[in-house]
């Protein structure tokens, strides 16, 4: 059942992406952006229902797996973007973020859920839930920042290379993209910090030590340091291109550690059966 609802949510996401991309191609039709936002909101709600149903069907342990993580991540990217839209109107960003949601969600649609697993008594604690949600929300912010940085680099290439074509006129100004990127990195860093602390708390409870040089812990710390460095760098005069490139690198690391470390057996105890 939850799979079906998730499919419906994915269809709405595809609709939202189509509307946003169409708006990007034909900025004259402003209603396309509003339509995109409306469809995205519907997708977000349907997706929430799918997650709720999924928890009933497969148990919370589903979120220990990559599949569960992706489902949650896609939902949080959508949510974060909708909230972002409330504060700054950036409909062109929608043309980049909504396809990202689809890319994140697609593997989850075709992977089979792990089956009804009971979360072991030992890890049942609020800090774990908080850890999972904040980690994914942080990644969601970094993901949106990644797309914004990509837009920045595209626009920078147009502006510097003196191609004043279709992309040039449709993409927002470099300055606004730069500032948006920095804000997203700051927000992501804050939330990710919470994930790191709660992760350590869970580890202390389950593994009996907050820090055990687990590859997942190490990579998360590296990521945290990288983004933390970027938040600081901003004050010392890092702008524009270099900042955008760092944002890209950061998100590649995030996705790499999320996908790779977990999928090679025996590398990490994180997110596994906790035995």
């Amino acid at each position: 059942m939850s799979m079906l609802v998730l499919m419906i949510a994915a269809a709405f996401y595809a609709g939202a992406a189509a509307a946003y991309v169409a708006f990007f191609a034909r900025p004259r039709y402003v209603w396309l952006a509003s339509a995109g936002q409306a469809i995205l909101s519907v997708a977000f709600v349907v997706h929430a229902v799918a997650i709720g149903l999924g928890c009933r069907e497969f148990g919370g342990a589903e979120f220990f797996s990559l599949r569960g993580g992706l489902v949650l991540l896609a939902w949080l990217v959508a949510g974060a973007f909708l909230v972002l839209q409330r504060f700054t109107s950036v409909p062109t960003v929608g043309a980049f973020v909504t396809p990202l949601i689809l890319v994140v969600l697609l593997p989850a649609l075709f992977a089979t859920p792990g089956g009804a697993q009971i979360v072991p008594e030992t890890v049942r604690r609020p800090s774990l839930t908080l850890h999972i949600v904040t980690a994914m929300l942080g990644v969601a912010f970094f993901g949106i920042a990644f797309m914004v940085a990509l837009m920045y680099l595209l626009q920078e290439r147009e502006v510097k290379g003196k191609h004043f074509g279709a992309l040039f006129s449709r993409l927002p100004s470099l300055d606004s993209l730069d500032r948006l990127n920095q804000r997203l990195v700051r927000a992501g860093f804050l939330v990710f910090s919470v994930a790191l602390v709660t992760g350590a708390l869970v580890a202390k409870g389950v593994w009996k030590s907050a820090w055990s040089w687990d590859p997942q812990q190490v990579s998360s710390l590296l990521i945290w340091l990288l983004y933390g460095g970027m938040v600081q760098l901003h004050h010392t005069g890092w702008h524009g291109r270099r900042y955008a490139v760092l944002t890209l690198v950061g998100f590649v690391l995030v996705i790499g550690s999320m996908v790779l470390i977990g999928s090679i057996p025996g590398v990490t105890r994180h997110g596994g059966t906790y035995q």
Partner: peptide
């Protein structure tokens, strides 16, 4: 509305303004 006859910058200073807008907002 139906053609793009009004698109783009058609004088040197208009181009300068458009460029500056795309860099600084």
């Amino acid at each position: 509305n139906e053609t793009e006859i009004g698109r783009g910058a058609s004088s040197v200073s208009a181009v300068a303004v458009e460029l500056v807008e795309k860099i600084f907002g």
